[in-house]
Write a protein that binds this DNA or RNA. Structure first.
Lengths: 188, 188
DNA sequence: GTCTATATACGGATAGAC
DNA sequence: GTCTATCCGTATATAGAC
């Protein structure tokens, strides 16, 4: 009925949802196989361990995250508007996800200190995002002779991360709105 | 030999270390009682459940965190220097703790969505910190007529949170140093 | 490749002796 | 209040049939 590749995708999708919503450590293999409606050994056929599944999830989620971001700002031309749209992008995601916070930071916060591969994937995600912000800033005229373009990009990046993490325990988007207003003032 | 209050403190200290270093979900009751060298039922005498222990840990750690911060900046008078010392404070802690990140955000990232008490404690910790920054900024002359004092405080707060969380997956303090440089430029 | 059955360890929590 | 013994559920992972 289902191809082996579909089985794998199915497992990955189920795991992605559970890992994000419940957390990695709070999600058991049993629940994943149950909700995927596949056999236990099928999971271990496609992924050699639970942490292997975590790595696959993080890689896949990161790819999808950027795909969605690019799509979200695709028809925005003005660099400053592009930046502000990033705030909207992350705010909308947080609303949809009931302020569970950034999936990558969330995963990074609960994995063991020796799981360097997970940290690496999270780092790559965040630094790619930071570089993306910087690339947009570079295309921009700024009269902020106090901060360099790199510093502006870093500030925007940290505003976004700081605001998103704050939203995750406040369970509202107030700080994200404030961050956007600050960004607006920094840019204009 | 040991008073009942000492037993409780002992359990709390052990749990604090393990919860922060290994994570809450990765730390079992068994390990806590073993390393505390107390009996299983003694733990349940002092704390009615594992999550009760978590709440006690978060409250206690928050109190100690502010105690240490106040001590750290006690002999600094200049408001701007006080702010910069906060960056140093958090950087030093991250070095000591091998870049495990902020204990409150770390806990907030792995607890269940319905554990509202934990979120509340984390939120109180962070907003008290944000208000403390704002109080210092209020005492300050700023020529930044672009951002209001509240916005400056929010920016500094988010720079600190964003940088600390970034350090936790990069496993170095580079972004925290950058954040401090940016803060310096924002303040002077 | 997918299945079920099972191995083995540990999770949180409680009962009843002292 | 502290102790040990134990309950029951679930954890990750593997073996062997089909």
């Amino acid at each position: 009925m289902k191809s082996t590749e579909e089985v794998k995708k199915n497992i990955l999708n189920t795991a992605a949802n559970l890992f994000y919503k419940q957390g990695y450590n709070s999600t058991g293999i049993n629940q994943i196989i149950e909700e995927s409606e596949i056999a236990r050994a099928s999971l271990y056929n496609h992924f050699k361990s639970k942490s292997d599944l975590l790595h696959a999830y993080l890689e896949d989620a990161s790819k999808k995250w950027f795909d969605e971001l690019y799509k979200y700002i695709a028809d925005t031309e003005d660099p400053k508007e592009k930046i502000l749209k990033m705030f909207d992008f992350r705010m909308e995601r947080q609303i949809v996800n009931q302020y569970r916070g950034c999936p990558f930071i969330k995963a990074g916060a609960e994995i063991a200190q020796n799981d360097s591969l997970s940290f690496e994937i999270v780092d790559r995600n965040k630094m790619t995002f930071r570089d993306f912000i910087l690339a947009i800033i570079t295309d921009m005229k700024t009269d902020n002779n106090n901060l360099s373009k790199i510093e502006i990009a870093d500030t925007l990046y940290m505003l976004l991360e700081g605001a998103t993490v704050t939203a995750s325990f406040q369970k509202n988007g107030e700080m994200m709105q404030r961050a956007k207003q600050i960004a607006k003032k920094l840019l204009y």
